[in-house]
Simulated assay, not measured.
Amino acid sequence: MENQDKKRILIINAALKRFAHYGLAKTTMTEIAKDISFSKALLYYYFPDKVSLYVRVIEYLMHSISKELTKSLEKASTSSEGIMLLLNKRQGYIQKYYNLMEYSKYSCNDMPEDLYEKFNRAKDFEIKILNVLLDRGIESGEFKLTDTKIATEIFIDCLAGIHFNILNKDKNIFPDKEQFKQIFIKEKRFAEIFIAGIKTINKS
Rank of each mutant, 00 (worst) to 15 (best):
K40H: 15
L43F: 01
L43G: 04
Y44H: 13
D49A: 03
K50D: 09
V51A: 03
S52M: 05
S52D: 10
L53S: 03
Y54Q: 04
R56Q: 10
I58F: 09
E59Y: 02
E59M: 03
Y60G: 00
Y60R: 06
M62P: 00
H63A: 07
H63E: 12
I65H: 06
S66M: 06
K67W: 00
E68Q: 11
T70W: 04
K71C: 08
L73V: 05
L73D: 03
L73H: 07
E74F: 06
E74R: 12
K75P: 02
A76W: 05
A76I: 07
T78D: 00
T78S: 02
G82R: 11
G82F: 05
L87T: 14
L87H: 06
K89T: 12
K89P: 00
R90S: 14
G92Q: 10
Y93H: 12
Y93V: 00
I94H: 05
Q95M: 07
Y98K: 10
Y98S: 11
Y98G: 12
N99S: 14
L100N: 07
L100R: 05
M101V: 04
M101Y: 15
M101K: 08
S104K: 11
S104G: 01
K105Y: 08
K105R: 13
Y106L: 13
Y106V: 07
S107R: 07
N109R: 09
D110Q: 10
D110T: 02
M111H: 05
E113C: 04
D114N: 12
D114T: 03
Y116C: 11
F119T: 11
F119D: 09
N120L: 12
R121P: 00
D124E: 14
F125N: 11
E126I: 04
I127L: 10
I127H: 06
K128T: 13
K128W: 09
I129H: 05
L130S: 04
L130R: 06
L130I: 15
N131T: 15
V132A: 05
L133R: 04
D135A: 01
G137K: 09
I138P: 01
E139V: 11
S140Y: 02
G141L: 01
F143T: 05
K144C: 11
K144T: 14
K144N: 13
K144V: 14
L145G: 08
L145H: 09
D147G: 06
T148M: 00
I150R: 13
A151F: 12
I154F: 14
F155R: 02
I156N: 01
I156W: 07
D157I: 02
D157F: 01
C158N: 13
C158F: 15
